[in-house]
C-alpha cells in the first residue's frame, strides 16, 4: 500500500487523448452514413393527415417521392395544389418519365420493389391524387404509400 501511494505521488498521470479525435470521427462517419440529408427543397406544403394503421417504409433507398400540395409561395404560384417531382413543379405528363428515371437509377434486381410514396397535403382534393394514381398505374409503379403522420384520426373533421 505504501508503495502504491508513493508511485501515485511522484508521477503525474497524463491520459493520452490522442485517440479521442479518432473516436469522435468514427461516430461522425457513422452518423454521416446512416442518416440521410433532405435532398429536395419543398415547394409545396405537405402537411400529411394522421392515420393509426400505418406501416413503416422499410428501405429508404427503394422509395421515390411525389409531393402534392398547395405551393408554399402562394403569392407567386397560387393556391391550387401542384405536383412536385425532385426539385421542380411538374405536370401529369412528367410522372411517367420520372418513374422511368427512378427505375433506371436502381439496381436491376430491385426495380420491381420500388415504392412510390405520395406525400399529399391534407387539404388537397382527391382529383389530382387520382390523376397521379392513374399515371402511376400506366407506368406500372403499382406499389404506393399514402404517407401519413402517426396519430389518431379525428373523426368528423371537415
Amino acid at each position: 500500500m505504501a508503495r502504491f501511494k508513493k508511485d501515485a505521488g511522484t508521477k503525474s498521470v497524463k491520459i493520452n487523448t490522442a485517440s479521442l479525435p479518432d473516436i469522435i470521427f468514427m461516430l461522425l462517419f457513422f452518423f454521416m452514413v446512416t442518416t440521410t440529408m433532405r435532398e429536395t427543397t419543398l415547394f409545396v406544403r405537405t402537411q400529411m393527415p394522421p392515420a393509426s394503421e400505418v406501416q413503416k417504409l422499410e428501405r429508404k433507398s427503394l422509395v421515390s417521392f411525389i409531393y402534392i400540395g398547395p405551393p408554399i409561395q402562394y403569392q407567386v404560384f397560387g393556391t391550387e395544389p401542384r405536383i412536385q417531382l425532385n426539385d421542380a413543379f411538374a405536370t401529369l405528363n412528367e410522372i411517367a418519365p420520372y418513374v422511368a428515371a427512378e427505375r433506371e437509377a436502381r439496381n436491376e434486381a430491385e426495380r420491381n420493389q420500388i415504392t412510390t410514396s405520395l406525400k399529399v397535403d391534407r387539404d388537397t382534393k382527391m382529383g389530382i391524387v387520382t390523376d397521379v394514381k392513374q399515371e402511376l398505374r400506366k407506368s406500372n409503379a403499382l406499389k404506393i404509400n399514402y404517407s401519413t403522420t402517426r396519430g389518431e384520426v379525428v373523426a368528423g373533421r371537415r
Binding site: 433532405r38 410514396s117 399514402y146
Partner: peptide, 27 residues
Amino acid sequence: AFLLLIFFLVTTTMDVDSGILRVLPPP
C-alpha cells in the same frame, strides 16, 4: 470533431417514413 458531429446530428433526419401501403391494380 464534436462540432462536426453535432452539426450532422442536427441537419440530418432519421425519421422513418410511414404511411398506408397499397398496391394499385395493374393497368
